[in-house]
Simulated assay, not measured.
Amino acid sequence: MGVRKRNTAERIKAERKEIAFAKLTNIPSSPRKMRLVADMVRGVEVFRALGILKFSNKEAAAKLEKLLRSAIANWEAKNERKAENGELCVSTIYVNCAPMLKRLRPAPQGRGYRIRKRANHVTLVVDTIENAKKKA
């Protein structure tokens, strides 16, 4: 590996040291329902976001809460220390469509209505608050 390539790789690795992410794939709910919950926690401090998700009455909130706990654990494993209150925030969260299951439902007069069973993928990135402010 050349010197320039090695220096670039080391710089990228140092930048990624502060960031931790978690992915949840093929969640059997529509992306629109998941985005409603994801919008509630975007840019919020992680322990406050956990409180928001815990007391939300949406089904998607429980899945996002578990994903957020996983991202926090990933950050703690990378940095070899516990996350303190007011240190981390949800810097990025996005919901993408997963492949749809297409089914047919019997309809009157010999027809069939198509049912689209939607699913989604969620990616959640946790970063320190100082780094998130620098990027914004």
Rank of each mutant, 00 (worst) to 15 (best):
12 I>W: 06
29 S>N: 14
93 I>A: 06
22 A>S: 11
64 L>E: 14
124 L>Y: 00
65 E>G: 01
61 A>V: 00
70 S>R: 04
101 L>A: 13
31 P>G: 11
51 G>I: 04
8 T>C: 01
38 A>N: 05
43 G>W: 04
26 N>R: 03
2 G>W: 00
76 E>I: 08
76 E>Q: 09
33 K>A: 05
135 K>I: 13
3 V>F: 07
61 A>N: 09
72 I>E: 00
1 M>I: 05
9 A>N: 07
94 Y>F: 15
102 K>I: 11
104 L>S: 13
132 A>F: 14
17 K>Q: 05
112 G>Q: 14
130 E>Y: 08
7 N>G: 07
61 A>Y: 02
125 V>Q: 10
69 R>A: 02
52 I>S: 10
101 L>E: 08
97 C>L: 12
85 N>A: 13
95 V>T: 03
51 G>M: 05
69 R>W: 04
104 L>C: 12
19 I>K: 07
11 R>T: 04
47 F>E: 08
52 I>C: 06
12 I>T: 03
133 K>D: 00
89 C>R: 01
51 G>N: 13
110 G>S: 14
42 R>S: 02
65 E>V: 00
127 D>V: 06
42 R>D: 00
136 A>Q: 11
35 R>V: 06
111 R>S: 14
118 R>N: 14
23 K>H: 12
116 R>P: 13
21 F>S: 13
13 K>W: 06
108 P>Y: 13
27 I>K: 09
92 T>M: 15
98 A>W: 09
75 W>C: 09
14 A>S: 06
33 K>D: 01
34 M>P: 01
47 F>V: 12
122 V>G: 01
6 R>Q: 04
64 L>H: 04
29 S>C: 09
82 K>V: 05
67 L>I: 11
48 R>A: 09
22 A>C: 08
38 A>Y: 07
128 T>Q: 05
112 G>R: 15
5 K>Y: 00
51 G>S: 08
61 A>E: 04
28 P>W: 04
60 A>M: 12
16 R>Q: 10
117 K>C: 02
87 E>H: 08
49 A>W: 02
99 P>I: 03
19 I>S: 07
37 V>I: 10
130 E>Q: 08
9 A>E: 07
76 E>L: 11
39 D>G: 03
56 S>F: 03
118 R>K: 11
129 I>R: 02
1 M>A: 05
121 H>P: 08
10 E>K: 07
120 N>H: 10
71 A>R: 00
3 V>I: 10
101 L>G: 07
127 D>A: 14
134 K>S: 04
48 R>S: 05
131 N>P: 09
70 S>Y: 07
7 N>W: 11
85 N>C: 09
104 L>R: 15
55 F>P: 07
18 E>G: 01
66 K>G: 09
76 E>H: 08
49 A>Y: 02
132 A>L: 10
96 N>A: 15
13 K>T: 02
130 E>M: 10
107 A>V: 06
130 E>W: 08
53 L>P: 00
108 P>R: 12
8 T>R: 13
2 G>T: 07
130 E>D: 12
120 N>W: 01
30 S>C: 08
5 K>M: 02
121 H>F: 07
79 N>D: 15
